[in-house]
Design a protein around this nucleic acid. Sequence first.
DNA 1: ATCGTTTATCGACTATAAACGATGAAGGGC
DNA 2: GCCCTTCATCGTTTATAGTCGATAAACGAT
Lengths: 116, 116
Amino acid sequence: MTTQPTDTDCCPPSDEDFSGPTQGKAAQEEFADFAQALGHPTRVAILKILIDRQECICGELVDELPVAQSTVSQHLKKLKEARLIRGTVDGPRMCYCIEPAALRRFRTLFESILKQ
Amino acid sequence: MTTQPTDTDCCPPSDEDFSGPTQGKAAQEEFADFAQALGHPTRVAILKILIDRQECICGELVDELPVAQSTVSQHLKKLKEARLIRGTVDGPRMCYCIEPAALRRFRTLFESILKQ
DNA sequence: ATCGTTTATCGACTATAAACGATGAAGGGC
DNA sequence: GCCCTTCATCGTTTATAGTCGATAAACGAT
């Protein structure tokens, strides 16, 4: 039998590749991309909600945030482009979850580039 | 005798306050501000140079970076506004150095907000 | 097939960011 | 005093970001 996409299975593990150099110009640009994606309070708030809830459908995010639905959608798009989150279709809805490997990669770059 | 401002003494310890909540909306906005400041490759490069060299006069940064002097100055201003660096006058020059407490604060917010 | 729900995209607008050259201010050397 | 160096700021231009309302696309339900 196939289960309905409920609770904890709407965001399966990804096979995204987050390897790469942790020093040099490319690493600095990759770090800047992550930083830029998190350089807006609404996007930080979205990520925080997704971390707390594991996953979330778009409408719930819209309810939580003080901006219009289209604005939330735009922010989700940027987070997706930065590979910090993933979205899977769930009938007429979209279920979003964080990409833990991306956060680890961001932290790795942080440690590597900004170590003193 | 008073020593010339050389090598390691042009950026004295600061008394900046980097305490504050590590959760909640204010913390998320503070994190976003740091992230935005680091959301440009040139600013990441500047920070990296300052970390490697401990301190640096503006002209050296201009020599290292592939952008105009005025552009470097603008990026330095943003980093200063984010309190990630400090600048002290050194005769006709400006000596810049990182603000280690700000990097620690950024890391603390990172861990606190984005922990899973 | 139609309708309601959900979400992405479009179009328009405003605001911020990024870049440069030119100018100005401050200091050191003569 | 005058010049040279150094760097910040100004003014301008172009590009990107952010926001919203409106619309379109996809789906489930009836």
